[in-house]
Design a protein around this nucleic acid. Structure first.
Lengths: 204, 204
DNA sequence: TGACAAATCGCACGGGCGTTCTATTCTGAG
DNA sequence: CTCAGAATAGAACGCCCGTGCGATTTGTCA
């Protein structure tokens, strides 16, 4: 009984890797079957439809993202260290072969309604919530100024990561990581509480 | 002799609109022929191959981008007004139906080499160059601090726009435009020269 | 207006797609 | 060891894709 589940997981692992470069629509059942050494119909039986396969791949991506990016960061101390860990882990996630699954897939699904799109939106909102929560905590810990908007902060971190991936995967700019780190540092610095007594002017 | 050229332009106009939502791979010749009222083979004859059609669509996108975003901004005064015009026009470009063609297409082509990808990279680099040049001029005009890196600035503006489009087209967040404007304002403010005598601490 | 070229059409081909059905092989519980 | 049921394979389907070709319509200039 466990055999089926193991095969299914092997398929998903391979499908996730493939989808990072060819997208979800580009992920054809025939090609995936060839890549996993199964027959087309044998593979198909595990999911029942292409759409269900796509949803499962998004789920697999979310699972790996939690495991590799979010969970380790949540073990860091609250405040700026945790925020920085989220950013660093995310950069590392994006540097793995094929780049970031989510960035590669978002543009593909934004005009194609359906359960796969819903699952992807859910994963992205979870991630933005995690960023905003980490920023909010950093404010609570008085490491960030009280007037820092956590949701705005999350938007800006997210934007930096989108820029990073575009520079990295599309433009193949070697400076992509320096640009991303530079932007993140500037963002964090401008959000910090004044280190000594005496306020500076607000930045936003 | 002009008939063919007119038809070709009509095809490209329609193809550009369609590609914003379905992408370049999703833009099939059959569907495009139906949308333009031509026969498949009649349309096909204008380009000779799917690949050539894709390149032409990217060219059409670049042409419209220059006309609607870059050219009007270059008529604004040098420095911050021009920079802000580039940003505003770009936001407006992204608010048109279908969103931004480039954002929609970049993720699709980043792992598919070929002339279409080359053309898209060229257009993006032109745009980043324009942003960096506008920032450099703003430094020269002493509206920005001398230690502002124009290329880093361009990266951050570009990232904000990617974030804007993701929030807008994918997450359908109504606050997308406020987030983008907020991030841009924060970026510009932190780059400005000190308005009066006496320097503040550097921000990045 | 006549004639030549440009523009467009209709049709067909091979191939990959997702999907279905039936047959076969494998596997694990009794 | 047996055997039901799970897991996989094989072949076929209708569909749409990009592409090529010959026929036909349309436009333009002498």
């Amino acid at each position: 009984m466990a055999k089926g589940e193991a095969t299914r997981q092997a398929i998903l692992t391979r499908a996730f890797e493939l989808a990072k470069t060819v997208g979800l629509s580009g992920l054809s059942i025939g090609r995936l079957a060839e890549a996993t050494g199964l027959s087309k119909s044998g593979l198909f039986a595990h999911f029942g439809s292409k759409e269900a396969l796509e949803v499962a791949v998004v789920g697999e991506a979310a699972r790996q993202f939690v495991e590799l990016v979010m969970a380790p960061a949540l073990r860091q101390p609250r405040g700026e260290p945790r925020l920085r860990a989220l950013f660093d882990n995310w950069i590392r996630w994006g540097e793995r072969p094929g780049g970031c699954f989510f960035v590669a897939t978002i543009a593909e699904l934004d005009d194609r309604p359906g359960p796969a799109r819903d699952a992807l939106i859910h994963a992205c909102k979870d991630w933005l919530d995690a960023l905003a929560t980490a920023a909010r905590i950093t404010v609570t810990e008085r490491q960030f100024r009280a007037d820092v908007d956590p949701d705005q902060f999350a938007f800006e971190v997210y934007s930096i990561m989108l820029g990073f991936h575009t520079y990295q995967k599309f433009l193949r700019e070697p400076v992509s990581i320096d640009r991303a780190r530079g932007a993140f540092d500037r963002l964090v610095t401008s959000a910090r509480s004044a280190p000594l007594a005496g306020r500076r002017a607000a930045t936003g």
